[in-house]
Design a protein around this nucleic acid. Structure first.
Lengths: 208, 208
DNA sequence: TGAGTTACTGACCGCTCGGTCAGTTGAATG
DNA sequence: CATTCAACTGACCGAGCGGTCAGTAACTCA
């Protein structure tokens, strides 16, 4: 039933992929600087070094470019986080893996974090965002922590606490720390900050 | 040097004040629902039951209405928080006062919180916001906690920790909790949530 | 009652911007 | 070298919106 499709990527495929990436990278920078409303498609086109019409050969609308940038960054981060957390044994190490991965990733992808954080703000008002899968990705990340906490609790590593609330708390601590760094309210090294956050969280939840 | 100003408020003053409040209340609802970019001045006028021109008799621009709504809510909350925290003796009670005041206020003023939270998102990208006093109000609130933590530490109530980071952490926990409630990810009572948050924070920082 | 004054109205203006499409370019092909 | 065609361009269109202002309503006061 499936149609025969060419096995090798044609030159055209490569070019298409390249343009997609090129436009997306340009868009990320523009959206990070000006926000969704403040960014014009012309801005993005100029940043990408193409004409506006070309943008629409690769993306159907401004919103779709925005979502694509968001999706790309979110899934990459989710994959990384899940891998790191899965590679940790104890709850303490899992929390540490979570916090450290997020902090480092966002620190290395500041433009993406700006878009992400601004979009969180919109999620509260604009329902469009909530319906487009991002809410799920976010909740999945929380669930990752939640499961770790629940299992750690089962092993007696923590005192008796609602795992979901604890997971949210850790996520909030982490996101806040990233934000503070981004706007320049934090100066210390990432290592020290991870240390402090994990220490606070761990003392807060551990059984001893 | 000061000019002679009328002692009693004239009828005109009362009307002016009334219109300002009326428009601001309408604007708060519209901004909360649609966000700054999505809200049109016509929307606000309609919600306030006046013509668009009337809006401009009381506010010079759409942005100013937005800032006025933000400023009003922020200062009211800041006043409340400072009073409650000042009325608490121990660090534990101060943290509790802080968390509880914020949670209750935002729960009772959801429209305001939506505007506030969306604006936080913008603050990361749009520098205009950072330059207009809101950043200072925010940092003052953190400083309130920071001082409490520092003094509590001096009294030996906490272990040795960087007060500023702890203050940010508590602020992040609190704001996150409010957000979770707003989007419907939390179902329990506010009392229980305050209990949990303060408990987590306290266990995280206390000397024992 | 009518003249003067203040509050209010909403049609209108200018401009921005998302999206389109007729036309151009240049590489591939024979 | 001629032909073809996919990729690309940017002038253009129409909608939406912030802000204005000439006109109207309503109120005051002599």
């Amino acid at each position: 039933m499936t149609l025969q499709t060419p096995q090798r990527r044609t030159k055209r495929d490569v070019l298409t992929e390249f343009r997609h990436a090129e436009i997306l990278a340009a868009a990320r920078g523009v959206f990070a600087e000006k926000g969704f409303a403040g960014a014009s498609v012309d801005d993005i086109a100029q940043a990408a070094g193409v004409a506006k019409g070309t943008i629409y050969l690769y993306y159907p609308s401004k919103r779709e470019i925005y979502f694509a940038a968001l999706r790309e960054g979110l899934t990459a981060l989710a994959v990384k986080t899940e891998a790191r957390v899965a590679g940790a044994e104890t709850l303490y190490d899992q929390i540490r893996a979570y916090v450290e991965t997020k902090l480092r990733y966002f620190d290395e992808n500041r433009d993406f974090f700006k878009i992400y954080f601004a979009e969180l703000g919109n999620m509260v008002t604009q329902h469009e965002t909530r319906d487009s899968g991002f809410e799920q990705i976010y909740l999945d990340q929380v669930a990752l922590l939640e499961n770790a906490v629940r299992q750690g609790g089962g092993r007696g590593e923590t005192r008796d606490l609602p795992a979901r609330s604890v997971a949210f708390a850790i996520a909030n601590l982490t996101r806040g720390a990233v934000t503070q760094r981004l706007v320049g309210w934090t100066e210390g090294s990432i290592e020290r900050e991870v240390e402090l956050l994990v220490d606070l969280a761990w003392k807060g939840i551990s059984s001893q």
